[in-house]
Design a protein around this nucleic acid. Structure first.
Length: 264
DNA sequence: TGTGATGTTGAATG
DNA sequence: GCATTCAACATCAC
């Protein structure tokens, strides 16, 4: 599930659960989820470490350790955090868990195993390495406009590109396109400056609204866009047209025919 | 029971 | 070399 607003919520949950906790030991149920070292090496690297806080950038959550290193949590398609005391509360799909000295355990659940966990000695070097762009909430207009120059890809493709702006995913991109009245398959190089500025504005507005109003993980408000128009048989709340389903940038895409203009 | 899924990557292609 | 596209990843839910 996680896009920027969900990971924002994971951060809140993580900070409350783990800040100032000392890791007593680590359990790894599935070595493959740790992407840059073996399970035992990972376990040794974390044992005895204190967690001092966390930093979020896009969909990436960096848990900071007192030695200056970081534990990177990327939630993939359906990662989740689960703090518990009683072993019976352990998640069915827990892949690894931090056991704190105070007796609590923070489990990382991930049924589909698309999550990525790394132990990082240098967070900034890693961000540089994967070319992760600025967080959507920190996006500056001039930078964004510059990133769009000379691009021939689709509007949806550019918004999903984490190097351009970090944090947007399939659902929120559809909502941004809906609000701008632009068809998601519109070509970036065919759009006017005004249209690009409008996209910038909606990125910020949608992300701010979502982070301020989203409850933890599920159970979004009734008027959330995927309850109204972004689903099979959905209705455009403004009644301007029919909801169509197609594929853009390789992803399932919803848009309102008649409302969203294809610019190419 | 077959299909699709809210993400990322690396290989293939242009 | 760069931008872009697309299959692959592994498993579950509908």
């Amino acid at each position: 599930m996680p896009e920027l607003p969900e990971v924002h919520n994971f951060k809140q949950y993580f900070d409350a659960a783990a800040t100032n906790q000392v890791i007593d030991r680590v359990t790894v149920h599935d070595d493959k989820i740790i992407r840059n070292m073996s399970g035992p090496v990972f376990t040794d690297a974390l044992a005895g470490r204190k967690i001092t806080g966390s930093v979020r950038r896009g969909k990436y959550l960096f848990a900071q350790l007192e030695n200056g290193h970081d534990l990177l949590l990327h939630f993939g398609m359906n990662g989740d955090l689960n703090l518990y005391q009683d072993e019976s509360d352990r998640g069915r799909f827990e892949r690894f868990a931090l056991h704190f000295r105070d007796g609590n355990t923070l489990g990382f659940d991930d049924s589909r195993k698309f999550a990525r966990i790394l132990y990082l000695e240098d967070r900034l070097a890693y961000i540089e390495q994967i070319k992760l762009g600025p967080d959507a909430l920190d996006l500056e207009e001039a930078y964004f406009l510059h990133q769009l120059e000379g691009r021939k890809t689709t509007l949806k493709g550019i918004l999903l590109n984490q190097s351009v702006v970090a944090g947007l995913g399939n659902l929120y991109v559809d909502e941004i396109c809906y609000r701008t009245r632009l068809h998601p398959a519109s070509r970036v190089n065919a759009m006017t400056l005004e249209q690009k500025k409008m996209i910038y504005r909606e990125i910020i507005d949608v992300m701010e609204y979502a982070t301020q109003n989203a409850p933890y993980y599920r159970d979004y408000p009734e008027n959330w866009f995927w309850h109204t128009w972004r689903h099979e048989g959905g209705q455009d709340p403004e009644g301007e047209g029919a909801v169509e389903i197609t594929k853009v940038a390789g992803r399932t895409t919803y848009y309102v025919q008649g409302r969203q203009k294809l610019v190419e």
